[in-house]
């Protein structure tokens, strides 16, 4: 098993573990028990059942998670009472980029922004240089605002891309995936709805 395959399967196992952990915590199960059961799921997802391991099955459905997703899942497992100051800007950025990116990337229009992620100069230097400049700007904003989680996702995705740690050679696949995009959209909508319908206490 090569490294990209291991990271691909490990990312899916991490997703399953974190999902179970979230469910257990919401059911008021103790954190220690939740960690043990989630760890068990992580290990069991590598065990073949009827010819397939659970992570192979879900990898067939989801493909590999991005480095951003893996970092966010790890952050959530290490720090279940996650800081909103760290997660909210990241989720907002993912939602905005995803809304602009996915429709065009799956064929709604003549321009394919996914192709920009190969960072080649087949169509000139402007697009790849703009891509790098935007990443540098986001990193700068993250360090000024002390958004460590966002900064970690940007930096480790860039490094993983250079090391070809996923099967893809496209930078987008390291920065973003539909699972975290969907999660970002859901959490933002849920937060807005919560704010809208929550009853304000009288002064």
């Amino acid at each position: 098993m090569n490294l990209p395959t291991l990271i691909g399967l490990g990312g899916i196992s991490l997703l399953l573990s974190a999902t179970l952990f979230k469910i257990l915590i919401s059911l008021k199960i103790s954190k220690q028990t939740a960690y043990i059961l989630s760890g068990l799921i992580f290990i069991l997802s590598f065990v073949p059942i009827s010819g397939y391991t659970v992570n192979q099955y879900f990898r067939g459905l989801f493909n590999d998670l991005s480095i951003t997703s893996i970092i966010v899942l790890g952050y959530y497992l290490i720090n279940p009472e996650r800081s909103k100051n760290q997660t909210q800007p990241l989720m907002l950025l993912i939602a905005i980029v995803g809304i602009l990116f996915y429709p065009a990337a799956i064929g709604f229009g003549p321009i394919d922004p996914y192709a920009w992620g190969y960072l080649n100069q087949d169509h000139g230097l402007f697009i790849p240089l703009l891509f790098l400049a935007l990443l540098a700007a986001l990193m700068t904003m993250a360090v000024i605002k002390r958004y460590t989680l966002l900064l970690s996702c940007l930096v480790f995705s860039s490094i993983a891309y250079q090391l070809n740690l996923l099967e893809s050679l496209n930078l987008w696949d390291y920065l973003l995936d539909p699972i975290i995009f969907l999660y970002a959209i859901i959490t933002i909508i849920a937060r807005r709805l919560w704010a809208l319908f929550s009853v304000k206490k009288p002064i």
Partner: peptide
Amino acid sequence: NKLLFSVGLLSLLVLLWQIV
């Protein structure tokens, strides 16, 4: 954060060099 930022910028510079 500063360490991460420095590593990140370095990684982008390497990417820039590869593209050029």
